[in-house]
Every structure is written in structure tokens, then in C-alpha cells.
Nucleic acid binder design. Structure first.
Lengths: 168, 168
DNA sequence: TTAAACTTTCAATAATTTTTGAAAGTTTAT
DNA sequence: ATAAACTTTCAAAAATTATTGAAAGTTTAA
């Protein structure tokens, strides 16, 4: 396969994966484009490459900056803003994990903790089932949380080395 | 908090989390409802409880069966179908991991492998950057895959015991 | 200060996803 | 065979989410 076709396929696959996991397709595609681009690109170039409007490009780029996945770059003597993606895949994974933990997991954990304090009749099957589910989910979520915390602080090789050795 | 209010809050939170992770909100809510219900419920009861239409309830229940999260139950002498959810949270986590791996991760891994075979000029920065990204993502995905494989086969206590011990 | 170059905003529109509900289909009992 | 009880389908409608593009805003250079 030629590079040009491969790029398109990569961008498409990344966009699809993103949308299946609750991330805007265009945002994933812009990220993919910057990830495989050796140089920083302008809004203009991104609009062109992905056939999207100026407004869409601008909003998507701001979102990606908000996710900590891309940065602005300024070139000497030029007014235009250039954008580039962190190319370190482990950093990307950690950044996504960090943001989703903060935006989505933590609010749910907060609710689950509030729900742990539900009051009712210990003899009522509905009450017992509810409490057990909340408790079990809390326990699982706690383990996920600890693992993510470790991941966020860890070097890639140490992290996977530890995990995979543990499964020997 | 009273049980009735707590149930509503749980169903709402589960629905929100689902939708943020690419799972239909109603599907997550129906799952939440069955998860905290000590008995199997009929389509009628689910429609009533969540204020959704018959068609929606039927489709959602079929989807949940497809995900391996709920099952039909037949009661002696009754025509109606009853639905109940597996209450084991570790089983649920494994089932979701298994399905998403199959439906979403594996197709992407397939594409990434095809993209590894891209041909081009080794001196071209665009080519080098593309290959490196694909290679790095492949490596990360491979580690995720191994970890998921282990998770799918493992008992909860062994799995988390191993993981958390590794991070000591 | 002016104007050109560039970025941001946001109301309107388009696209996608979800839901409805009535009709069609199926199963069971008599 | 019939009818009641129940399930499934799917075209149309509603709701949600994403995108456009022109106008407004900002920055820089002369």
C-alpha cells in the first residue's frame, strides 16, 4: 500500500474508533492527521486535508488542546498558528486516561459513594440487591482507579513490564 | 437517601456513563434497572419503569442479550418473557471487555497490521513518521490485548491481586 | 490609524442517532 | 381453526449531535 492511501485509511480507522468510544469522529481524525504529520500544520491545511469547515477545524483544534493532545506552535515571522501532536503514544494514552478519568469516571464514583449511604429495610430484597450492586461496582471502580493512578505516573516499559510479569 | 430516589439516581448515572462511552443511554439504563432488581422483569414492567415505548424496550433488550449482559427467563405456566441481568460485576466487566475487544479493538488491530506493510521512501519524513506512529500504536495495542486476554480468563481476586501487587 | 491577516463565535442547517407506536408476526390454548 | 397473549418490525418523527460559513473579533505591521 502507498503512503497516501495508508494515511487515509489510518485517519478513517482512528475516526471510527473514536466515535465508537464517545469521541467526536472529526476530533479523532484531526488528531490522527497531526499524529502522522512530521510537521506542524495550519488550520488551513487541516481544513483542506480533511474537507472540513473553518469553524469546525477551529473548534476541534481547541478541543484537542483541551484534551492535552496537541499544541500550538508559532513560527518566527509568521502570523499563522501551527498545530502539532505529541507523537509519544504512551503520553497520548496517559493523557486520554487522565482526562476521561477526571471528566467521566470521577463524577460516577462520586454518585456511587453517595448511593452507598442509601437507607432502607435490610430485609427487603430490593434494598439488599441495590446495596450489593453499588458496593461491588464501587470495589471494581476502586481497583480500576488505583491502576489508572499508577499508569498516569509510570513509564511505559516499567508499567507493562510489571503488568505482564504479574500474569506469568 | 431513600431507595426509590437512589434507584433513579443510579439509573441516571449509569445511563450517562454509558452514553459517554459510546453505549446507547437507554440500553445502559435498562441494564442498570435489571442489575438492581432482585427479580426478573417483563418488557411491560421495564417500559413502565423507564417510560419508554414497546419498540424501544424490545430492541434494547435484544441488544443487551447480544452483549451477553442479560438473559430471558420463562416462568412455568406463563406466556410472558422475563429478563434478568447477571449480577456479578466482574462477569459484567469481562463481558463488556470481550465484546468491545471483538467489535472494535480487533477491527482496528487488523487495519493497523495492514498499515504496517505500507511502502515508501525511507528518507521521507512523512513516511518515517507514519511508520513510527503505526508501530508504536501496534505495540501499545498488543499489550492492551494481552492484558485483556488475561482478564477474560481470570478470577477477579487473582487478577487484581496480581496487578496491584505488581505496582508495590 | 488603517487595513490586512488571521482567529473565534454562533445561529442556522445538516447529519446522525434514537424513539415511537401501530401493524404484522408468532405462539399457545382451546 | 380461532382468538387471545404476547413479541417483533420498521417507517416516520423526535431528539441529539455535528457542521457550516459569514460576521465579528483580534493582532500585527506599516
Amino acid at each position: 500500500m502507498e503512503l497516501a492511501a495508508a494515511k487515509l485509511k489510518f485517519i478513517e480507522a482512528w475516526g471510527k474508533l473514536g466515535s465508537e468510544w464517545g469521541i467526536n469522529r472529526t476530533m479523532a481524525q484531526v488528531h490522527a492527521l497531526l499524529l502522522i504529520s512530521p510537521d506542524a500544520l495550519t488550520t488551513e491545511e487541516i481544513m483542506e486535508e480533511l474537507s472540513i469547515s473553518r469553524g469546525n477545524a477551529n473548534m476541534t483544534l481547541r478541543d484537542l488542546i483541551g484534551w492535552g493532545l496537541i499544541e500550538k506552535q508559532h513560527k518566527a515571522g509568521e502570523r499563522k498558528e501551527y498545530f502539532f501532536a505529541d507523537k509519544d503514544v504512551w503520553n497520548i494514552a496517559r493523557q486520554v486516561a487522565k482526562e476521561r478519568k477526571k471528566r467521566e469516571l470521577e463524577p460516577v464514583l462520586k454518585v456511587l459513594n453517595e448511593l452507598s449511604a442509601v437507607s432502607g429495610d435490610e430485609k427487603d430484597p430490593a434494598f439488599k440487591t441495590f446495596k450489593k450492586s453499588v458496593k461491588d461496582i464501587n470495589k471494581l471502580a476502586g481497583n480500576v482507579d488505583k491502576t489508572l493512578e499508577t499508569m498516569l505516573k509510570a513509564e511505559e516499559s516499567w508499567f507493562w513490564g510489571s503488568v505482564l510479569k504479574a500474569f506469568k
